[in-house]
Computed example of a mutant assay.
Amino acid sequence: MKLSKLEKYFEVEKLVFHSLDLALYNVSAVVEGQEYIITDEQGERIKHHNLLQLQQLFQKVKAKKQVIRQSSAYDEMIGGPVKGNNELEVSLGDNKLY
């Protein structure tokens, strides 16, 4: 879903900032129970190395809550059995530090 379309919703259930690698994030949003990856006008995934700048970019989106989500490859790295979903999701406030 394009960011411009997301901004038109009256309210979004959840804005999810995905922590991909060290300091690389992309964004998805849960709208009416469905999760969408958010893109720019050219259809490219919106990603950034600075979480605060991403929050600034999404400041017009009226989200009930914001979270940061991270998956860990720890089990695979130590040779352990592959587990199901090991995602960690933490509430994230927008303190408007940008």
Rank of each mutant, 00 (worst) to 15 (best):
M1C: 09
K2G: 12
K2N: 14
K2P: 08
K2V: 12
L3D: 11
K5E: 15
K5D: 15
K5L: 13
K5S: 14
K8Q: 14
K8T: 11
K8W: 01
Y9A: 06
Y9E: 15
F10N: 12
F10S: 13
E11Q: 14
E13F: 01
K14G: 04
L15Y: 06
F17Y: 14
F17R: 10
H18G: 01
S19G: 09
L20H: 10
L20E: 15
L20V: 14
A23N: 15
L24P: 00
L24R: 12
Y25I: 09
Y25F: 13
Y25C: 06
N26A: 07
V27E: 04
V30F: 01
V30D: 01
V30G: 00
V31C: 01
V31A: 00
E32K: 09
E32A: 11
Q34K: 14
E35L: 06
E35N: 08
Y36V: 05
D40T: 08
D40A: 09
G43N: 09
G43K: 08
G43E: 12
G43A: 10
E44W: 08
E44M: 14
R45N: 14
R45W: 09
R45Y: 12
K47C: 12
K47M: 14
H48S: 15
H49D: 14
H49A: 12
N50D: 15
N50I: 14
L52S: 13
L52M: 11
Q53A: 14
Q53Y: 08
Q53F: 07
L54N: 05
L54S: 05
L54E: 08
Q55P: 00
Q56M: 06
L57R: 13
L57I: 03
L57S: 04
Q59R: 12
K60H: 05
V61F: 01
K62H: 10
K62F: 02
K62I: 08
A63V: 06
A63N: 07
A63D: 05
K64S: 04
K64V: 06
K65V: 11
V67E: 03
I68E: 01
R69K: 15
Q70M: 09
S72E: 06
S72H: 08
A73V: 09
A73F: 06
M77I: 12
M77S: 12
M77Q: 12
I78F: 05
I78D: 04
I78K: 07
G79E: 03
G79Y: 01
G80P: 00
P81Q: 08
P81S: 09
K83V: 13
K83A: 10
G84Y: 07
G84W: 07
N86I: 07
N86E: 11
N86V: 07
L88P: 03
L88F: 10
E89M: 11
E89Y: 02
S91C: 06
L92G: 06
G93K: 15
L97S: 06
